[in-house]
Amino acid sequence: MAEDDPIISGVPAAARTVDQAGLHEVRTGADQPWDPEDLAVAEGHDPTPKHVERSRRKLEELGPAAIEKTVP
């Protein structure tokens, strides 16, 4: 089945769950809470005050999209 193949579906099996109706749900990096420090490190920066502040602003302005752009 194509949707079971991560190469075909584009979603790795580890990132999928099945809901009560038997439908696949895609989990993303934004499904969990993120601190500005976490986002700074995920972007490859040291968690210096400058980078943490930049990440805090991104999280405030973009919400979960800030995470999705960095950690799909």
Score class of each variant (00 low, 15 high):
5 D>T: 12
26 V>L: 10
19 D>K: 07
23 L>F: 11
46 D>S: 12
9 S>R: 01
13 A>I: 14
55 S>T: 00
55 S>Y: 00
51 H>N: 15
28 T>E: 08
48 T>E: 09
50 K>T: 13
38 D>A: 14
52 V>D: 01
16 R>S: 12
13 A>F: 15
11 V>G: 02
19 D>V: 09
37 E>V: 06
26 V>N: 05
56 R>Y: 07
10 G>A: 07
42 A>P: 02
16 R>D: 11
50 K>H: 09
17 T>S: 15
21 A>Y: 10
35 D>F: 09
39 L>R: 01
49 P>T: 07
39 L>T: 03
37 E>K: 03
55 S>G: 05
26 V>P: 03
44 G>P: 02
14 A>Y: 13
5 D>M: 13
26 V>Q: 12
5 D>E: 13
42 A>G: 08
39 L>A: 04
49 P>Q: 10
30 A>T: 04
7 I>W: 13
56 R>G: 06
27 R>N: 15
21 A>N: 10
37 E>N: 03
24 H>A: 11
48 T>F: 05
34 W>S: 03
46 D>Y: 10
47 P>I: 02
5 D>L: 14
22 G>M: 01
14 A>S: 14
41 V>T: 05
24 H>P: 07
24 H>T: 09
8 I>R: 15
53 E>A: 11
31 D>N: 12
44 G>V: 06
37 E>G: 04
7 I>G: 14
34 W>E: 04
21 A>W: 05
49 P>M: 08
40 A>Y: 00
56 R>I: 02
38 D>F: 05
30 A>Q: 05
5 D>K: 14
50 K>S: 09
7 I>D: 12
40 A>L: 03
19 D>M: 07
10 G>K: 06
54 R>C: 04
13 A>M: 13
7 I>T: 13
50 K>G: 03
25 E>Y: 10
50 K>Y: 08
51 H>F: 08
28 T>G: 10
27 R>T: 12
